[in-house]
Protein backbone atom coordinates (compact mmCIF):
# COMPACT_ATOMS: atom_id res chain seq x y z
CA UNK A 1 0.00 0.00 0.00
CA UNK A 2 1.22 3.47 -0.89
CA UNK A 3 0.10 6.61 0.97
CA UNK A 4 1.02 10.23 0.28
CA UNK A 5 0.08 12.84 2.88
CA UNK A 6 0.22 16.42 1.69
CA UNK A 7 3.44 15.83 -0.23
CA UNK A 8 5.30 18.68 -1.91
CA UNK A 9 8.48 18.50 -3.91
CA UNK A 10 10.55 21.56 -4.72
CA UNK A 11 13.70 20.88 -6.75
CA UNK A 12 16.87 22.74 -5.80
CA UNK A 13 16.39 24.99 -8.84
CA UNK A 14 13.12 26.20 -7.35
CA UNK A 15 10.72 24.24 -9.59
CA UNK A 16 7.67 23.17 -7.62
CA UNK A 17 7.12 19.75 -9.17
CA UNK A 18 4.48 18.60 -6.68
CA UNK A 19 2.30 20.63 -4.34
CA UNK A 20 0.22 19.19 -1.53
CA UNK A 21 -0.39 15.78 -3.08
CA UNK A 22 -2.35 13.25 -1.01
CA UNK A 23 -3.30 9.87 -2.35
CA UNK A 24 -3.72 6.27 -1.39
CA UNK A 25 -3.07 3.23 -3.56
CA UNK A 26 -4.23 -0.13 -2.21
CA UNK A 27 -2.58 -3.45 -2.79
CA UNK A 28 -3.58 -4.98 -6.13
CA UNK A 29 -4.79 -1.76 -7.73
CA UNK A 30 -4.10 -0.76 -11.31
CA UNK A 31 -3.48 2.98 -11.52
CA UNK A 32 -2.73 5.29 -14.44
CA UNK A 33 -1.08 8.62 -13.71
CA UNK A 34 -1.83 11.08 -16.48
CA UNK A 35 -1.27 14.74 -17.15
CA UNK A 36 0.52 17.14 -19.44
CA UNK A 37 4.28 17.18 -19.78
CA UNK A 38 5.90 18.70 -16.70
CA UNK A 39 2.88 17.97 -14.50
CA UNK A 40 5.02 15.99 -12.06
CA UNK A 41 4.30 12.37 -13.00
CA UNK A 42 7.92 11.27 -13.05
CA UNK A 43 8.55 13.16 -9.83
CA UNK A 44 5.72 11.30 -8.13
CA UNK A 45 7.22 7.99 -9.22
CA UNK A 46 10.70 8.98 -8.07
CA UNK A 47 9.30 9.77 -4.64
CA UNK A 48 7.70 6.33 -4.31
CA UNK A 49 11.00 4.82 -5.26
CA UNK A 50 12.93 7.12 -2.94
CA UNK A 51 15.11 8.36 -5.73
CA UNK A 52 14.00 11.80 -4.56
CA UNK A 53 12.90 12.85 -1.11
CA UNK A 54 9.83 15.02 -0.57
CA UNK A 55 10.35 18.60 0.56
CA UNK A 56 7.21 18.41 2.67
CA UNK A 57 4.70 15.78 3.73
CA UNK A 58 4.90 12.08 4.51
CA UNK A 59 5.06 8.99 2.29
CA UNK A 60 4.40 5.47 3.48
CA UNK A 61 5.19 2.38 1.41
CA UNK A 62 3.79 -0.87 2.81
CA UNK A 63 3.53 0.78 6.20
CA UNK A 64 7.04 2.22 6.33
CA UNK A 65 7.82 5.92 6.27
CA UNK A 66 10.15 6.84 3.45
CA UNK A 67 11.39 9.87 5.32
CA UNK A 68 12.37 7.99 8.43
CA UNK A 69 13.98 5.19 6.48
CA UNK A 70 17.74 4.81 6.87
CA UNK A 71 19.90 4.94 3.78
CA UNK A 72 20.95 1.36 4.15
CA UNK A 73 17.32 0.22 4.17
CA UNK A 74 16.53 1.82 0.83
CA UNK A 75 17.67 -1.22 -1.22
CA UNK A 76 15.18 -3.39 0.66
CA UNK A 77 12.38 -0.94 -0.15
CA UNK A 78 13.38 -1.08 -3.80
CA UNK A 79 13.23 -4.87 -3.80
CA UNK A 80 9.50 -4.56 -3.10
CA UNK A 81 9.05 -2.38 -6.17
CA UNK A 82 9.78 -3.28 -9.79
CA UNK A 83 10.69 -0.41 -12.10
CA UNK A 84 10.03 -0.19 -15.85
CA UNK A 85 11.24 2.72 -17.98
CA UNK A 86 10.51 4.22 -21.34
CA UNK A 87 14.00 3.40 -22.59
CA UNK A 88 13.95 -0.23 -21.29
CA UNK A 89 17.40 0.08 -19.66
CA UNK A 90 18.64 -3.36 -20.61
CA UNK A 91 22.31 -4.32 -20.67
CA UNK A 92 23.24 -4.75 -24.35
CA UNK A 93 26.08 -7.17 -23.69
CA UNK A 94 23.86 -9.65 -21.88
CA UNK A 95 21.22 -11.98 -23.16
CA UNK A 96 17.56 -11.72 -22.26
CA UNK A 97 18.08 -14.47 -19.70
CA UNK A 98 21.14 -12.76 -18.20
CA UNK A 99 19.41 -9.39 -18.04
CA UNK A 100 16.61 -10.86 -15.98
CA UNK A 101 18.92 -13.05 -13.90
CA UNK A 102 21.00 -9.97 -13.13
CA UNK A 103 18.23 -8.57 -10.90
CA UNK A 104 18.27 -11.78 -8.88
CA UNK A 105 22.07 -11.92 -8.62
CA UNK A 106 22.10 -8.40 -7.28
CA UNK A 107 19.84 -9.32 -4.37
CA UNK A 108 21.84 -12.46 -3.67
CA UNK A 109 19.41 -15.13 -4.81
CA UNK A 110 20.56 -18.75 -4.94
CA UNK A 111 21.75 -19.97 -8.32
CA UNK A 112 19.21 -22.78 -8.29
CA UNK A 113 16.45 -20.26 -7.56
CA UNK A 114 17.62 -18.09 -10.44
CA UNK A 115 17.62 -21.04 -12.81
CA UNK A 116 14.08 -21.88 -11.85
CA UNK A 117 12.59 -18.41 -11.61
CA UNK A 118 13.98 -16.64 -14.70
CA UNK A 119 12.41 -18.98 -17.30
CA UNK A 120 9.18 -18.75 -15.33
CA UNK A 121 8.89 -14.97 -15.61
CA UNK A 122 10.12 -14.99 -19.21
CA UNK A 123 7.27 -17.36 -19.96
CA UNK A 124 4.85 -15.00 -18.26
CA UNK A 125 5.84 -12.18 -20.63
CA UNK A 126 5.95 -14.53 -23.61
CA UNK A 127 9.70 -14.50 -24.19
CA UNK A 128 10.55 -18.10 -23.31
CA UNK A 129 11.80 -18.68 -26.86
CA UNK A 130 14.08 -15.62 -26.90
CA UNK A 131 16.07 -16.27 -23.73
CA UNK A 132 19.45 -16.46 -25.43
CA UNK A 133 18.99 -13.46 -27.71
CA UNK A 134 20.62 -10.11 -27.04
CA UNK A 135 18.47 -6.98 -26.57
CA UNK A 136 19.46 -5.59 -29.96
CA UNK A 137 18.07 -8.70 -31.64
CA UNK A 138 14.65 -7.94 -30.16
CA UNK A 139 11.86 -5.59 -31.19
CA UNK A 140 11.03 -2.65 -28.94
CA UNK A 141 8.05 -4.47 -27.48
CA UNK A 142 10.10 -7.55 -26.75
CA UNK A 143 12.77 -5.42 -25.11
CA UNK A 144 10.16 -3.81 -22.92
CA UNK A 145 8.77 -7.21 -21.99
CA UNK A 146 12.27 -8.26 -20.99
CA UNK A 147 12.41 -5.20 -18.76
CA UNK A 148 9.02 -6.12 -17.29
CA UNK A 149 10.27 -9.64 -16.61
CA UNK A 150 13.26 -8.15 -14.83
CA UNK A 151 11.01 -5.92 -12.75
CA UNK A 152 8.87 -8.93 -11.89
CA UNK A 153 11.51 -11.51 -11.17
CA UNK A 154 12.05 -10.69 -7.49
CA UNK A 155 8.31 -10.88 -6.76
CA UNK A 156 7.73 -7.21 -5.91
CA UNK A 157 4.43 -6.12 -4.41
CA UNK A 158 4.26 -3.23 -6.84
CA UNK A 159 5.43 -2.50 -10.38
CA UNK A 160 5.87 1.11 -11.38
CA UNK A 161 6.31 2.11 -15.01
CA UNK A 162 7.21 5.58 -16.28
CA UNK A 163 5.89 5.90 -19.82
CA UNK A 164 6.53 2.24 -20.62
CA UNK A 165 5.01 2.57 -24.10
CA UNK A 166 6.54 5.96 -24.94
CA UNK A 167 8.91 4.43 -27.48
CA UNK A 168 6.49 1.89 -28.92
CA UNK A 169 3.87 1.92 -31.68
CA UNK A 170 0.21 1.59 -30.79
CA UNK A 171 -0.12 -2.16 -31.36
CA UNK A 172 2.96 -2.95 -29.36
CA UNK A 173 1.77 -0.57 -26.67
CA UNK A 174 -1.38 -2.62 -26.40
CA UNK A 175 0.59 -5.81 -25.98
CA UNK A 176 2.61 -4.24 -23.19
CA UNK A 177 -0.47 -2.96 -21.40
CA UNK A 178 -2.08 -6.39 -21.66
CA UNK A 179 1.07 -7.82 -20.15
CA UNK A 180 0.72 -5.41 -17.22
CA UNK A 181 -2.94 -6.35 -16.92
CA UNK A 182 -2.05 -10.04 -16.63
CA UNK A 183 0.48 -9.28 -13.92
CA UNK A 184 -2.09 -7.19 -12.10
CA UNK A 185 -4.59 -10.06 -12.32
CA UNK A 186 -2.17 -12.13 -10.23
CA UNK A 187 -2.29 -9.51 -7.48
CA UNK A 188 0.64 -7.18 -8.16
CA UNK A 189 -0.08 -3.46 -7.79
CA UNK A 190 0.59 -1.60 -11.05
CA UNK A 191 1.26 2.13 -11.35
CA UNK A 192 1.80 3.53 -14.82
CA UNK A 193 2.55 7.11 -15.81
CA UNK A 194 1.53 7.48 -19.42
CA UNK A 195 0.40 9.69 -22.32
CA UNK A 196 -1.28 6.76 -24.10
CA UNK A 197 -4.77 8.28 -24.20
CA UNK A 198 -6.57 5.55 -26.18
CA UNK A 199 -5.32 2.78 -23.97
CA UNK A 200 -6.19 4.59 -20.75
CA UNK A 201 -9.64 5.32 -22.13
CA UNK A 202 -10.41 1.75 -23.03
CA UNK A 203 -8.87 0.01 -20.02
CA UNK A 204 -11.16 1.85 -17.58
CA UNK A 205 -8.85 1.61 -14.58
CA UNK A 206 -8.24 4.12 -11.84
CA UNK A 207 -6.84 7.36 -13.29
CA UNK A 208 -5.04 10.02 -11.28
CA UNK A 209 -4.77 13.31 -13.17
CA UNK A 210 -1.91 15.67 -12.34
CA UNK A 211 -1.59 19.25 -13.46
CA UNK A 212 1.14 21.65 -12.43
CA UNK A 213 2.03 19.46 -9.49
CA UNK A 214 -1.50 19.05 -8.16
CA UNK A 215 -3.96 16.19 -8.32
CA UNK A 216 -6.86 17.50 -10.37
CA UNK A 217 -8.84 14.29 -10.41
CA UNK A 218 -8.76 10.74 -9.14
CA UNK A 219 -11.38 8.47 -10.72
CA UNK A 220 -12.01 4.77 -10.56
CA UNK A 221 -12.85 3.37 -13.98
CA UNK A 222 -11.64 6.71 -15.31
CA UNK A 223 -10.52 7.99 -18.70
CA UNK A 224 -7.51 9.96 -19.92
CA UNK A 225 -9.19 13.35 -19.85
CA UNK A 226 -12.48 14.76 -18.64
CA UNK A 227 -14.88 16.01 -21.22
CA UNK A 228 -14.73 19.39 -19.52
CA UNK A 229 -10.94 19.82 -19.92
Amino acid sequence: MISFFNVSKVYPNGVKALQGVSLQIEKGEFVFIVGPSGAGKSTLIKLIFREELPTKGQIYINGRSILRMKRRDVPYLRRQIGMVFQDFRLLPDRTVYENVAFAMQVVGAKRSEIKKRVPEVLKMVGLEKRMDDYPLQLSGGEQQRTAIARALVNNPSTIIADEPTGNLDINTSWEIMECFQEINDKGTTIIIATHAKEIVDSMRQRVIGLERGKIVRDEHRGVYANATT
Partner: peptide, 16 residues
Amino acid sequence: RREINIMKYVGATDWF
Protein backbone atom coordinates in the same frame (compact mmCIF):
# COMPACT_ATOMS: atom_id res chain seq x y z
CA ARG B 1 27.29 3.21 -15.18
CA ARG B 2 24.32 1.53 -16.88
CA GLU B 3 24.73 -1.56 -14.77
CA ILE B 4 25.17 0.51 -11.63
CA ASN B 5 22.02 2.41 -12.47
CA ILE B 6 20.07 -0.81 -12.96
CA MET B 7 21.55 -2.32 -9.80
CA LYS B 8 20.28 0.66 -7.92
CA TYR B 9 16.78 0.19 -9.30
CA VAL B 10 16.58 -3.50 -8.53
CA GLY B 11 17.69 -2.89 -4.95
CA ALA B 12 21.40 -3.68 -4.72
CA THR B 13 22.95 -2.61 -1.44
CA ASP B 14 25.59 0.11 -1.59
CA TRP B 15 28.29 -2.34 -0.63
CA PHE B 16 27.28 -4.79 -3.31
